[in-house]
Design a protein around this nucleic acid. Structure first.
Length: 277
DNA sequence: CCGACAACCTGTGAGC
DNA sequence: TGCTCACAGGTTGTCG
């Protein structure tokens, strides 16, 4: 479900409700996520103070000072179907509500994740040194990422450019929707071998990745099926897709039928007229 | 190092 | 109505 814009929308919604607040308690109802939710997590979180809520790629990091004055990080990933939102303390959990953080302001941050590809972990020490985070590529919305970086990272890659920009080790947070949309905006055929994308076109692609992610964040993310923001409100960027989910429909720029195929078990949509190798 | 593919899991919609 | 199949926003691990 969530790509970077949806995770960032969630972070922005939750931050004012949790930063500089204490966790009264945590509730784990299902430990079987992508990795098991660690035993003892509830004890570590009880009484902890959250100093900051940050994001790295699609991971959310709750920086915590525990009740016994140790530092740690609650790491949360939403996987394909996860969402994290605020509910009132009396809201009854439903079938796929696996995890709660009860905040000292009476709100509850609740994780719902039907497919359970999400992740809830406790990290000691420097969270960015953890193997899950240390190998993630540059953040697309900071100065760490630009055309020069993308060009360098793609020189040895013969795989299709779409697969390469979706590789989180090349650039963080670009999932299937925004990979399709950025390639359309940059005018690049998604099947092009990455190493054959010129320096200038890498510049255009890096720019479009940043633009489309930024616009999606401004729109509160994309709501497909069940995604909603932390406040339960749907995002509306899904109304501005040029190609994603539009196979067979006319291109919004030139009218040519949008084509669709599968790359790496994921749907790719592109305009054969507007996007070239 | 790179690429191809399966795996993890549930829900939904299309087609018969 | 009910069954089966393909597919859905992600990431990791394995194998060649």
């Amino acid at each position: 479900m969530p790509e970077l814009p949806e995770v960032e929308t969630t972070r922005r919604g939750l931050a004012p409700q949790v930063e500089h607040h204490h966790i009264l308690r945590a509730v784990v109802r299902h430990r079987g996520l992508r990795q098991p939710v660690p035993r003892g997590l509830e004890q570590r979180l009880a009484g902890a103070r959250v100093s900051a809520l940050a994001r790295r790629g699609k991971y959310l990091l709750f920086s915590c000072e525990t009740a016994d004055h140790r530092h740690g990080t609650l790491l949360v990933h939403l996987g394909m179907s996860g969402r994290l939102w605020l509910v009132d303390a009396q809201t009854a959990p439903e079938k796929h509500d696996h995890f709660d953080l009860v905040v000292d302001n009476g709100r509850v941050i609740r994780l719902r994740d039907p497919r359970r590809f999400g992740l809830v972990l406790w990290l000691q020490g420097d969270p960015l040194a953890h193997p899950l985070l240390s190998r993630i590529g540059p953040e697309p919305l900071t100065a760490d990422f630009d055309g020069a970086v993308l060009h360098r990272e793609t020189r040895s890659r013969s795989a299709a450019i779409k697969l390469v920009i979706m590789d989180g080790h090349v650039v963080a947070g670009v999932g299937n929707i925004y990979a399709n949309e950025a390639l359309f905006r940059a005018g690049i055929d998604p099947r092009t071998p990455a190493k054959r994308v010129s320096r200038a076109r890498c510049g255009a692609l890096a720019r479009e990745i940043r633009t489309v992610l930024g616009e999606a964040i401004d729109a509160g993310g994309s709501s497909l099926r069940d995604y909603v923001g932390s406040d339960g409100m749907a995002g509306h960027f899904q109304n501005r897709f040029f190609v994603y989910g539009r196979g067979g429909e006319p291109c919004m720029r030139c009218g040519t039928a949008i084509r669709e195929l599968r790359q790496g078990q994921r749907a790719t949509c592109w305009c054969p007229q507007c996007q070239k190798r």
